[in-house]
Design a protein around this nucleic acid. Structure first.
Lengths: 363, 363
DNA sequence: CGTAAAGCCGAAACCGGTTTCGGACGCGAT
DNA sequence: ATCGCGTCCGAAACCGGTTTCGGCTTTACG
């Protein structure tokens, strides 16, 4: 152990003597300006000099101090993320994966993630402004986009780079933005198609607050699915504004109490779909037989419950990775217009969907 | 809207012309060195000069650039947190609260939070070293302490300030460390006492992997409770190494299959206690009557399930706040020995505990 | 009234880099 | 041999602060 750490033990004895660019310069017999330009790929440096500097830097373990660079360049190589603490669903269990994805990708490129939080929507802008004013970050990742997102407007007005998790401007997409999104619309369409294939004809939809962009998209996907199956859209079977398990249960009750109840419900989120399990237990219904469910998100509880929830799973870690990559690319000067990615959710079959049983009247 | 933003719109026209310390100095008719010392509470500045500088700084909206300061001071006013992505329980739903607590408290003091992640234990030290080497953080918050925590050793050897969420060194507490912890031992003791008061005499315990410090402490709390009630400790009723719901269920089965099964189980974590609900459903037992449960954590699922889980809830947000405060205090030079906090978990009564029914033999 | 000790501020170096500018040198063409 | 041009590197300014040092005023005191 002692021998292995020999090179380090010099640091121990001479504690924290980190190698600076001037050390490198004297070791090479160059000036620090030349070394700096060699490391930053300036054109006026001879190729073999550049190489000499590179190898010596690696050998001596030189690493520039980001903040010393920042004094001149104004860039700190840090990504910013502001969590909304007042959000209804608190990010659920995805946050760890999401953060893991961002930080892993960022560290690969030598960037870090700085996070802050806001307790209210008004607070949000102040928090963004503070991080900016202190130059703690170079750009932002904005999760949970709304249809009209004030954060995006605010940052764009300031000329600060950012990337969105989810699109904004439902119906009229904004070309000047960079985003990553999961195709919730396609997933909902496929979900309806799957239920139709099983024989369902009355299929309901339960979605969240309409202010969120994804809510509208998923609802549209549901309608797409109906249209593709040539099933008429019944407004009574579409309930919006549902954001947690209890409200999901209430929605299920309301739907089952209709004169002509649905045999299947597509939920826009897993968390709300769990409410249907509660209602099924209340009424003695068997999920997957008396009532079929398909949802979206892929939360762990969905796999634990009996029968497991059929859902379209979102890969939060991948989302984090790609968002970080997109933002870094943007900060490096890539044109914003090219920086969009749409991926599809992955179907995770459970036991919550099956062929319908027609207890009341047949169609 | 336009009028309200009038003061900001000046920034719009003269974009990003931030006020530097030299601007302040010329406006005041002082030199920047004097201004700097006035703002940093140096003793050799006249009180009224200090005040004059303060008010002018506020008026002109001066805010120092942290990284410019850092070049000289070596402090970036950033807290570091490294998430372990390979942890068994993925932080569950607490992460958002925890992060919220840290960032809220940190931003109050003008600090920010930088996070990174490690995919393995070996990776962890490399990640810590990288953040340190790049001077991205001044100190660390270390969650999930183990009995022998390599991170603590590593950072202490480097002389880097840090604070632990949870204590280390079970049995032989280390005086040179700063930590915040929730008294899991006391909670488990009280949990046993509560069950004893209800009439239980055979009380089991299910705990997680013994490498974690909190696992040992909670187990000790269970034993404390038995001792206080003068109940002999039966090793057969104590199962360790249980970390998720399925394993919690397996433990419950094992306990119920004993020749003299327990009437109550104390689980060290809510997540594992949920497994007992599954077993109860399998065997037609009623939780809270045929089998009583008390657990620890306060996860949301525990409140949703029927009957709600009686548990000792941990306030993750408060933990984050206090950890940030402790670390900042330490970074400001407070003696490490004083920086420890032990809070008690709050009992959250549910319906999972009740008087025992003696189906087999009476005692 | 003289002098030493505070009190208070300015000048300049410094932190670790980046960037601009200009000059030395080598080379081919005239 | 001279000129011109391109290549390559050094010198020095710069970024936005902090900190050391020294000197000029006051004040306290003998």
């Amino acid at each position: 152990m002692e021998e292995i750490r020999d090179t380090n033990s010099q640091d121990q004895t001479a504690p924290a003597r980190r190698v600076r660019i001037s050390d490198l310069a004297t070791a090479l017999g160059l000036t620090k300006s030349t070394v700096s330009r060699a490391l930053n790929d300036y054109a006026d440096i001879a190729p073999d000099t550049r190489e000499r500097v590179r190898t010596m830097a690696a050998q001596m373990g030189y690493a520039p101090m980001p903040y010393a660079q920042a004094v001149r360049t104004g860039r700190v190589r840090a990504l910013g993320l502001v969590l909304e603490l007042d959000a209804p669903d608190r990010y659920g269990p995805f946050l760890a994966d999401f953060l893991g994805g961002i930080t892993q990708e960022a560290s690969l490129e030598g960037w870090t993630l700085t996070i802050a939080s806001s307790t209210s929507r008004a607070d949000m802008e102040a928090t963004l402004a503070r991080l900016l004013q202190e130059h703690k970050v170079d750009g932002f990742i904005l999760p949970r986009t709304r249809i009209h997102d004030p954060r995006a407007l605010f940052l764009r007005a300031k000329g600060v780079p950012f990337v969105l998790y989810g699109r904004v401007g439902y119906g009229q997409p904004d070309p000047g933005l960079s985003w990553y999104d999961v195709d919730g619309r396609g997933a909902m369409r496929d979900g309806v198609a799957r239920l139709v294939a099983l024989g369902h004809k009355r299929i309901a939809f339960v979605g969240p607050c309409e202010a969120y962009n994804f809510a509208m998209l998923r609802r549209d996907g549901y309608r797409d699915g109906l249209a593709l199956a040539q099933i008429a859209h019944d407004p009574a079977l579409e309930i919006m504004g549902v954001s947690d398990r209890a409200e999901g249960a209430a929605a299920a009750r309301a739907l089952l109490d209709l004169p002509d109840p649905p045999t299947a419900i597509v939920y826009a989120t897993d968390a709300t779909a769990l409410g249907a399990y509660d209602v099924a237990r209340e009424r003695g219904l068997t999920i997957g037989r008396d009532l079929s469910l398909i949802a979206y998100d892929g939360i762990p509880e969905g796999r634990m419950i009996e029968p497991p929830l059929t859902t379209f799973a979102v890969d939060s870690r991948h989302a984090g990775e790609r968002l970080a990559a997109l933002l870094i690319a943007q900060l490096r000067g890539a044109p914003v217009a090219d920086l969009t990615e749409l991926v599809s959710a992955q179907l995770q079959p459970g036991g919550s969907d099956g062929p319908p049983v027609f207890t009341k009247r047949e169609t």
